[in-house]
């Protein structure tokens, strides 16, 4: 079976959610001119009325918006900018297909080799990954994952790549869109432990991995990712996942019904 070699180089960088969707690309003096001109045009349009007035209003509105926001969609389309600022570092884009990327990172006060050893044992996964009941190693780089959500059980198979050198684990599918779930380990500076980065590339057209993950991550894979990392950190550092589930309170105890 041909393996999808994990390409880790495109997984590093600043997560999408931390990037501005409309970065500034209009310089300060141009912003003032654009706003003033746009405002003038709108005022003239209101005074002039008619088709020409409407047109002036629309153009003026666009100019003013661009001035106030400091972002020009036309500049963006042509990769232009009138701001004197250093070009941002190139962010890798996945080109084959439109994928949604979810990235979350947590620092754990344990050495990377220990974290890696813990993660690569399939028996540990259900302890921290929400809704995962069991992971079976099928050998030859394949695993089967059993999940349960709202009483619904399912299982799915994935290809797993273990990169010992880079201390990375990557789950992917052999068929369908190039989705993946990657866990990357890096040393935190100053001996503060390990930075664990979880990257989910999910297909908007609902590839296999997403469907499988949807079973466990529900409608909110980001939440699932955060909860999973938080639990993993608690397990690795504190040796338990702290809970208040089952403690006393003065509230009525809900009757639990079998699902």
């Amino acid at each position: 079976m041909q393996s999808k070699t994990p390409r880790l180089d495109d997984i590093h960088g600043i997560p999408a959610r931390a990037r501005r969707t409309n970065p500034l690309n209009v310089g300060p003096s141009e912003r003032v001119v654009s706003t003033a001109l746009g405002g003038g045009l709108v005022a003239w349009g209101v005074w002039r009325r008619g088709a020409l007035g409407l047109l002036a209003g629309a153009v003026g509105g666009a100019l003013a918006t661009r001035g106030v926001r400091g972002h020009c969609p036309a500049y963006a389309a042509f990769g232009l900018s009138s701001r004197k600022a250093p070009k941002p570092t190139h962010m890798p884009v996945l080109d084959t297909e439109k994928l949604t990327r979810i990235e979350r990172t947590v620092t754990v006060a344990r050495p990377a080799n220990e974290v890696y050893a813990f993660l690569r044992d399939p028996a540990h996964v259900p302890h921290f990954a929400p809704h995962v009941e069991r992971v079976e190693d099928l050998g030859a780089g394949r695993i089967r994952v059993w999940t349960a959500m709202n009483g619904e059980r399912s299982s799915w198979e994935a290809h797993i790549d273990l990169d010992h050198e880079a201390q990375a684990l990557v789950l992917s599918h052999a068929e369908g869109p190039p989705e993946r779930l990657a866990i990357l380990l890096g040393n935190a500076p100053g001996g503060r432990g390990t930075e664990i980065r979880l990257v989910l590339d999910l297909s908007k057209t609902r590839g296999l991995l997403l469907r499988a993950l949807a079973a466990v991550a529900g409608e909110d894979p980001d939440r699932w990712a955060r909860a999973g990392l938080r639990r993993l950190k608690m397990l690795l550092e504190a040796g338990e996942i702290v809970t208040t589930e089952g403690q006393p309170s003065g509230r009525l105890i809900p009757v639990t019904r079998a699902a």
Partner: peptide
Amino acid sequence: GVETVPDPEILGPH
């Protein structure tokens, strides 16, 4: 107010 509630139980290994 005071209420009668269940006794607490061990929930974690520590």
